[in-house]
Structures are given as C-alpha cells and as structure tokens.
Design a protein around this nucleic acid. Structure first.
Ligand SMILES: [Zn+2]
Ligand SMILES: [Zn+2]
Ligand SMILES: [Zn+2]
Ligand SMILES: [Zn+2]
Lengths: 143, 143
DNA sequence: TTGAGAATGAGATTTATTCTCAGAATGAAT
DNA sequence: ATTCATTCTGAGAATAAATCTCATTCTCAA
C-alpha cells in the first residue's frame, strides 16, 4: 500500500511519541478501505481481527492521524463524527442524500481556488476545506 | 422587522400546528439578532426576559424553524450544533478561525453556481449548501 | 362549556466523547 | 540484562448535548 506507516511514524517521532501496536492496527484499518468512517464502525472493523484495541485508544489516535495530515474530519452524520483519508486521495466535495445517506464525491478544484481567493482577501489562512451540499439523490427523488 | 412571524404561522397551520407563546418567543429571539446561535445561548437570551420557556421546547422548536425554511443548521462548534437565519439573509460561506472561533462570512454566489453545475451532472437535487473552510484568522496568525 | 388533540416543563434517559487511573509496554542508559 | 523515566493502554467512570417520557396545561372548534 502507500506509506502511511512511514508518514505516521515520522510524525510520531517528531513529537516524541511511539508507533505502538494499537496505533499501527488503527492506522492499517483506517487505510484498509477508502470509505469515510466513524469510531463505531472502525471499532467493529478492528474487533474482527484484534480483541485488544479499545475505543479509548481509537479516540486518542484519531487526533494524531489528523494532526499528521493523514486524515481529516469530514461529515457529521447521525450524531456521529465521521472522518476520511487525505493521504492518497484527491480533494473532493460531498453531495449527501438526506434520505438514503448516499455520499457522492466530486472533484472540487474550481471551488477551492475561489475559496482561496476569498480567503486571501480576508487575510485568512485556510487549513481545511469543507465544501458540499445536502439534498436528494436521483434514486430517492424518482421513487 | 421581516414577517418571519407570518411565514412561521403559515407553516405551522399547514401542518395543523399552533403558534403558541413559547414558539413565538423563540422565533422572536432567534430573529432579534443576526448572529449564528446554539441552544444554550438562545436559552440564556430568552431567560433574560421570559422565565417560562424550557430547553425542551427550544429543542422541539428548532426542527420546525428549519422545516419552515427560516433557519438552517450551520456550523458545529465546541461540540454544539449551531444554527443561522436563512430568511432575510443572503447566502454566504464561512471561514472559521480554529483558534479564536471568529467566523468570517463571505458572499458565495460563484461557488454555489459551480456546485449547482456539478450536482446537475450527478442528477442530484441540492436543498442546502454547506461551503466553508477552517484555518487561522489574521489576528491569530500574527500573534 | 366541553372535549380532543396539541404543547409544555421538568426531569430522566441516551449516547458520543472525554477523562481518570492503575498497571503494562517502551526504549535509552547503564 | 536491569534499571528507570516516560509514554501507552484498557476499563470503566464522568460529562454533556440531544432526545424522550409523562403528567399537566393550553388551544380552539364545536
Ligand atoms: Zn438517496
Ligand atoms: Zn469524501
Ligand atoms: Zn482567530
Ligand atoms: Zn453564517
């Protein structure tokens, strides 16, 4: 796969932290699929193979993954925070169907460059884009 | 002021619901300022004048205000859902400072028309835009 | 005035997330 | 290997936003 491992390890080292077994399992599971994820789903996924990783450690590791630039906070859905990869993924925006929950991902270079321009005008330094819309997908509309 | 009252009343009537005193107080307070708001802040604001509106009723009224098209869910900040007016407000996007919490509102017509185009391509019907970015404002960067 | 349905406040409940803490793992230095 | 300081961990308690329950009160049309 990619070298998320290396990226994460370097990041941890730079902060005097360690790439422990639980952290490695969490990292690997996060990058085992390309879907958005939340803590509960990730926990279930991990538990299929490893009985020795706790929710607490997942909650503690996610901020590290974010700070290392590997993932970002994404949607909030059904009262749960969701996350998604940055590393190895093109930037995109989300069209979220409010009925079936389907998420359509779309390239977003144009919108980002506009946002960058606006941010510059307001002397604002963007760290993370958050671009999308909610509505109805084709299937749910025609049903 | 505007006729949010009328809009809300019509909406409620159309659903067989009533514009009661608590609902009216909540509506008025929501539209008394033009800031984004959350339940706690709204509750405090209301309590300055009216001792007889409960948190429960606020939580129950907000979905009605959303469904009536008067307000929309906006940011999530400090683990709290935030809301903002739609009625009487131009659409805008948010630049949120992650350090001081400042929110810069910016016109967003261009980005919206791009999003509309992309949505059409994916046969998606947008109900609500959600466009913004997180980062650092000028003051927090230069401190 | 009355009655059926809607709405309310108070407080209990739920549940995602954070916190606490005692013990386990780590790894550098001896 | 043995120390030792530090970081990590799992388990479960704690927190707090949002939702739910329920007995009572309001509303309004008949
Ligand atoms: Zn759908
Ligand atoms: Zn995505
Ligand atoms: Zn700031
Ligand atoms: Zn706004």
């Amino acid at each position: 796969m990619g070298n998320e491992n290396l990226v994460f390890k370097k990041f941890l080292l730079s902060k005097g932290l360690k790439l422990t077994k639980p952290r490695k399992i969490i990292l690997d599971t996060v990058f085992a699929t390309h879907e958005h994820f939340n803590v509960d789903g990730l926990y279930d996924q991990i538990r299929k193979k490893h009985k020795d990783v706790s929710r607490a450690t997942i909650y503690r590791t996610i901020p590290l993954l974010i700070e290392s630039g590997l993932i970002k906070q994404s949607l909030r859905c059904l009262a749960k925070d969701h996350y998604e990869h940055i590393y190895g993924h093109g930037r995109h925006l989300h069209l979220i169907c409010e009925k079936c929950g389907k998420i359509i991902e779309v390239e977003s270079k144009e919108t980002e460059s506009i946002l960058n321009k606006l941010a510059k005008k307001h002397d604002f330094k963007i760290r993370e884009f958050n671009i999308g819309a909610k509505g109805l997908c084709e299937k749910c509309r025609n049903k």
